[in-house]
Amino acid sequence: MTDTGHTANILGFAHRHLLGIDGLTAEQITFLLDLSDSYVALNRSDDKKTSLLRGRTVINLFFENSTRTRTSFELAGKRLGADVINMSVSSSSIKKGETLIDTAMTLNAMHPDVLIVRHPDSGAVKLLSEKVNCAVINGGDGSHEHPTQALLDAQTIRRRRGNLQGLRVAICGDILHSRVARSNIQLLGIMGAHVRVIAPPTLLPSNIERLGVEAFFDMREGLKDCDIVMMLRLQTERMQGSFVPSIREYFRFFGLDHDKLQAAKPDALIMHPGPMNRGVEIDSELADDIDRSLIRDQVEMGVAVRMACLDALTRTLRSNSEERAAAQAGGAA
């Protein structure tokens, strides 16, 4: 990992949107994580509110149900002083795509500063970002990317282990449908960690090795010598005899329990993006084991990381309006 702390760019982050981890450099990721650290401290203090984004409007545009991600973004925006609006759009209609562009145009006319978008279709957030003038943060698109989750996972690991470089990380479960897995594979790879994926072949996308990971079908084999074990949520609607035959069979062979965890390093840490299915992909006791489980840390880091992303993406905006204000002041004098 390159220890730059800050990039040459005084604004720190040269992207207009955060659509994915793909395309970010190690320096940019480190910059975002360092920035997040400062917000962790703020979030633990009594007065959690700043006025950094005062007067700015942040819209949470969710085409898919979400509680924790939406709440996390909402808190992040509010703690930075922005006005945050939540919009849930049903995506059940066949014309969801038309709704997407129409909604984008409508919202754009309201001059938001940041749009946070979650959508059930891969690539939908990028499509929307092409139609609006504000910054867009991908809050999860289909099976493609969920960049803030990968950033908060990295932040969680970094605060425990100091560094991501050289760590052996296993991502287990429904890799096929997981945007969390794809973003984490990208980020961990960029930061020099060794990534393994463990799942039955029906839940592994084809050519996954081409993303720079090792694939395993056996938990004990795959977990051997791992520092971090990331479990993924298994969507139970996918359990009905198509991808895996039953929940009990899945838990027996791919659920994380004390026994399988023995294969990992003795101090291996467990992560889960939530919401958990206790007894499906993870043993209930293990999930609550405060020595091993980072699940609560992940939630805490989520708010800090999202504050850092909002901060970084609005720097250009803010410096422009400062310049304008300065120019106006100069003109008046």
Binding site: D22, S122, H144, R179, S206, R210
Partner: peptide, 15 residues
Amino acid sequence: NEGEVATRLGLTGIP
């Protein structure tokens, strides 16, 4: 098409 590109884009592949 099923393959690396589909996997990266998170799109369902056709083998």
